[in-house]
Design a protein around this nucleic acid. Structure first.
Lengths: 120, 120
DNA sequence: CCGGATCCTTGTCGATACTG
DNA sequence: CAGTATCGACAAGGATCCGG
């Protein structure tokens, strides 16, 4: 726990609200996207994504997602060097959310974002 | 435009990333949720939701969602007093995303959030 | 080199008071 | 009732430094 000091506060008992309490930021779901598209991925591979997350944010998000058991180290006992992260079952279950988002953006955001491509 | 000074910057051409550029915060999708559940809703009705958004954030989100044509005034020509917002077609198309989120949270977040209920 | 941690600047959030 | 103004707290971003 470096920055996220056990931050698990829920605004309400609503499931949608709870999902947003956890994933309602601009980066977490993007890391999940990378893992779904490319499979297991190391720290530096995440940094190579076109959106350019900064190192401190990446470290804190990986820690949070690990706490929530959405991702884990491929080899839990090995040192972190070249030890990739991969999705747990809970993390992989986020795929329908990302698919719905991609589908929606493709259909309703192209007026505002001409360069957008279909399905990364 | 008070706080959102025409902020339409896209991090990449990826649809998922683009959706998160617009909706990747803890409040926007919650307002959409209220509109899906309750139908047209006024400023003060949004404030009554259990998550307690503050007035400046609410105003800035309503403005942003209006710019993106996800919501609009029920009566565009009337003064704002008691003039509710409702979903456009693009806004209503977000429903599958919210359903996927609710479903996922119900299945994978109950270990961390015991009080969560199923489907708001 | 890789995976971070630290420092510092900038931006956004959130509470409350206030206004048309 | 529907916002706006203000201000403090905190999170994001960027650059750099460090241990293995």
């Amino acid at each position: 726990m470096t920055q996220n000091n056990g931050n698990l506060e829920w605004r309400s008992p609503c499931p949608v609200s709870s999902a947003l309490d956890v994933l309602g930021d601009k980066w977490s779901l993007l890391l999940i996207r990378d893992l779904i598209i490319h499979g297991p991925r190391t720290y530096s591979q995440f940094l190579e994504a076109p959106e350019h997350i900064s190192t401190n944010i990446l470290a804190s998000r990986l820690e949070l997602l690990t706490c929530l058991k959405l991702i884990e180290r491929v080899n839990p006992d090995a040192p972190s060097r070249n030890n990739a992260y991969h999705l747990t079952e809970s993390g992989a279950a986020l795929r329908p959310i990302l698919e719905a988002m991609g589908k929606w953006a493709g259909a309703h955001l192209s007026d505002f974002h001409a360069d957008m491509v279909r399905m990364p």
